[in-house]
């Protein structure tokens, strides 16, 4: 399979102290590292799930791919050529990558009708020779809504409907890659499958690559081919979804999977699977950054940072003592 997206050693850093104060602040505390040394690749037709809790850097990583946030180190290659630069320089790339944002309603421009919103990609890229109204009708039908929605405004839509509109917009220009940031956020259990089913069906039809960023482990389990687990900005485990769920190698992955509440009253857990909280990005723990919450932590974990290494041809983990 040809690699569509290749990310290698990516760092995304945010300035936290700005202006004249930056001159006084110690060098290390001017920035926080949201993403550190992240490497992953997505092939055409593949679904990659990027999983993490809040503050894990998964959204920053997704936004860095299309240049909404700049990256400081590492490379992002799309179809083999490196990306980066100004909004103008990124335009051709953004034409080929569709993005869905977390908040289904807030990611739709509030003063535009659904019809105008769906025509936006064609306007932005000044695509000639296509009837924009017809395209909007084609797109709205593709996501299973009737043409009456074209006259509505985003605030008149339910979360699930807005999610479909966001999906239709992301797919407007037949992208080669779709990035979906928390596609189930804010949706009820009974409708959260809709958007994902649609994505999956359209992927089967068009063969695009899918990068799904989520904290929803139970959902991603069913729809992704491979998973990457992020913790404090680093990818701590990567591999085929089935393998990871069957036998997680990183203690954090194991805790994350065990923390999902089971809808079965006969299963009662005695203790929460992971104690403690995610440390602050500003005060990263020494050694392995997960050692503060890891029940297997040794002195080595507290002092020496583990490298990302392969434990199988298609599986990697950032841990001195992988489980299993």
């Amino acid at each position: 399979m040809a690699e569509l997206l290749e990310i290698d050693g990516l760092d995304v850093r945010y300035r936290v102290v700005g202006g004249w104060r930056a001159l006084l602040a110690p060098r290390g505390s001017r920035f926080v590292d949201a993403v550190l040394d992240a490497s992953l690749h997505v092939a055409a037709g593949e679904t990659y799930g990027l999983v993490g809790e809040s503050g894990s850097g998964k959204t920053s990583l997704a936004r860095a791919i299309i240049g909404l946030v700049p990256h400081q180190a590492g490379s992002i290659r799309f179809r083999g050529s490196p990306t980066g630069g100004s909004d103008r320089a990124m335009r051709p790339l953004r034409r080929d990558i569709g993005m869905m944002f977390q908040d289904p309603v807030a990611s739709l421009s509030p003063r535009l009708t659904v019809g105008r919103l769906l025509a936006e990609p064609f306007r932005i890229h000044a695509i000639p020779g296509r009837d924009r109204a017809a395209e909007a009708r084609r797109l709205i039908a593709m996501v299973g809504l009737d043409a009456g929605f074209l006259r509505m405004y985003p605030h008149q839509l339910s979360g699930g409907q807005a999610r479909r509109v966001g999906l239709a917009r992301a797919l407007a220009l037949d992208p080669a890659l779709v990035i979906a940031d928390e596609p189930t956020a804010g949706l009820d259990v009974s409708v959260q499958g809709e958007a994902l089913n649609l994505l999956g069906a359209l992927q089967a039809e068009h063969g695009m690559g899918l990068l799904i960023v989520t904290h929803n482990l139970p959902v991603i389990r069913h729809i992704s081919d491979r998973l990457g687990i992020m913790y404090l900005g680093r990818i701590v485990e990567q591999g085929p979804t089935r393998a990871i769920f069957r036998r997680p190698a990183h203690p954090y992955t194991a805790g994350l999977i065990a923390a999902v509440p089971q809808p079965d009253p006969d299963i009662k857990r005695d203790a929460p699977p992971l104690e403690g909280e995610i440390p602050s990005l500003r005060q990263r723990p020494t050694g392995c950054e997960f050692h503060t919450r890891c029940r297997f932590a040794t002195d080595m974990c507290r002092s020496v940072a583990p490298d990302y290494r392969l434990i199988a041809p298609d599986r990697g983990v950032r841990c001195h003592f992988p489980l299993g």
Binding site: V189, Q192, G193, N197, G200, P218, I223, V260, P261, P263
Partner: peptide, 16 residues
Amino acid sequence: CDPARVAEGTFPLPTI
């Protein structure tokens, strides 16, 4: 519909 109850690899996911 609860994805935690659905058998592994179910696609499409059940909805109401």
